[in-house]
Design a binder for these strands. Sequence first.
DNA 1: TTTCTCATGTAACGCGTTACATGATTAC
DNA 2: GTAATCATGTAACGCGTTACATGAGAAA
Lengths: 180, 180
Amino acid sequence: MSLKYAILGLLKISPFTGYDLSKYFKGSISFYWSASHPQIYRTLKTLLNEESVKQEVVTQEDLPNKKIYHITAKGSEELNKWLLTPQELPQVRHKFLLQLSFADNLDDEQLLDLLKEYKSKTESQLSLYKGHQSETVENLPANKKQKFLWKSILKNGLYYYEAELKWITEVINDYNKLSL
Amino acid sequence: MSLKYAILGLLKISPFTGYDLSKYFKGSISFYWSASHPQIYRTLKTLLNEESVKQEVVTQEDLPNKKIYHITAKGSEELNKWLLTPQELPQVRHKFLLQLSFADNLDDEQLLDLLKEYKSKTESQLSLYKGHQSETVENLPANKKQKFLWKSILKNGLYYYEAELKWITEVINDYNKLSL
DNA sequence: TTTCTCATGTAACGCGTTACATGATTAC
DNA sequence: GTAATCATGTAACGCGTTACATGAGAAA
């Protein structure tokens, strides 16, 4: 359901091909929303049927043809309606916490390994995230308000990873004290 | 895929009915993993076919019959294997951030309303979360290590909501400064 | 009398992932 | 030669939600 509006939102900023959209959903957007390319092409098809977008076919020499999608008036309307609808709080699917909640059968070393691995993964995710802040969505044409919003969104991710890192660091420390 | 192991993990602690399991996935576990009852019954069926669990039927007077599920040796083995497998980082589907990223068309008041609503939702979620920390999984029979793990998991949720609250508060403040 | 709890399930649909399928150009 | 980028799609499967379906007892 939300992917529809995510695509409409991007197309409102600028027309894109399915391939372009796909890149955005692999870039910095992926922190809060991701989508695979089959999903994108499928959703574009639905949007076409609903006449929320229209296609412009561009033939290219030496490269595959492009289908550039544009948002229609109807699409804009739907997007605006959705923008005013309050959304539910984020859903987290935290496999690592699930694992932790049943990990008491593991011996001390195995458990510590799991914890440490999670920490190092979080660390590298954080630096990766800091690194590609400047890419993708953020360098699309934007006004002052838009820029403020994008900065705020990036900050959310930052806070999230920092909280996660603080947490896992404390858990490892506390665990070491416990098993003394 | 993970639901299978979540169920096995719970059944390892104690035998349960589908209905019991369903309650856990609506309680404090739901912060990091949720499942609806059709999903649970479906997964139990699969686990039965794989012989990872077995059924004990209990007839009750004046109440519907129960099917109590027990983990088998095979189920335990599968669980242990999974417990040693490093999991990917959590996936967040953050509808509100998605909305924010396209919200620059809204006027100042509408945007502020969205932000404030998110803040109040986060606040009530936080207090709800603090409230039911003592329920559900946490009062199952547990050893020292198990209790440490559950406390750590609860702390993760706490940090998460606190970070989210800090973030939205700052965003609202910054936005008010901007639109002066 | 209406709602909640106990207790089990199916059907239909929609969302999301992985694999399959093609094919040229460019960069290492 | 091998991988990446550009560019589009389909097929199959699995995960997740909502609605449908039943039915008794207890509490408000």
